[in-house]
Computed example of a mutant assay.
Amino acid sequence: MTLDLFPHQTFTVPEAIGPDAFVLRNFATPHIEELLSAINTLERQAAFRNMVTPGGFIMSVAITNCGRLGWTTDRQGYRYSPIDPDTGQPWPSMPAAFRQLAKEAAAESGFADFEPDACLVNRYLPGSRLSLHQDKDERDFNAPIVSVSLGMPAVFLFGGHKRTDKAARIPLMHGDVVVWGGVDRLRYHGVLPLKENPHPLLGGQRINLTFRKAG
Rank of each mutant, 00 (worst) to 15 (best):
E108G: 00
F141K: 12
E115D: 15
T73N: 11
L132R: 04
S147C: 00
H31K: 02
G110W: 02
F27T: 03
L35Y: 07
Y78G: 06
I58W: 06
N142C: 11
A96W: 03
I63K: 07
A46E: 04
R49N: 01
T72K: 07
V146I: 04
F98E: 05
R44L: 14
Y78I: 10
Q100I: 12
R79A: 13
L120N: 01
G127L: 11
E108W: 03
A112Q: 14
D84G: 05
D135P: 07
P126Y: 09
N40Y: 12
G70T: 05
L125W: 09
I39E: 04
D86V: 13
S93H: 11
L132A: 11
V148C: 01
E33I: 00
N142P: 02
L120F: 07
F57C: 14
F22Q: 03
L36K: 02
A107M: 09
C66H: 04
F156Q: 02
S149C: 09
A106H: 03
D117H: 06
L36D: 07
M152Y: 06
S109G: 00
S109H: 05
S37I: 06
I39W: 00
A62E: 02
D84Y: 07
F156W: 07
L130R: 00
T64K: 05
S81I: 08
A118I: 10
G77F: 13
F114Q: 06
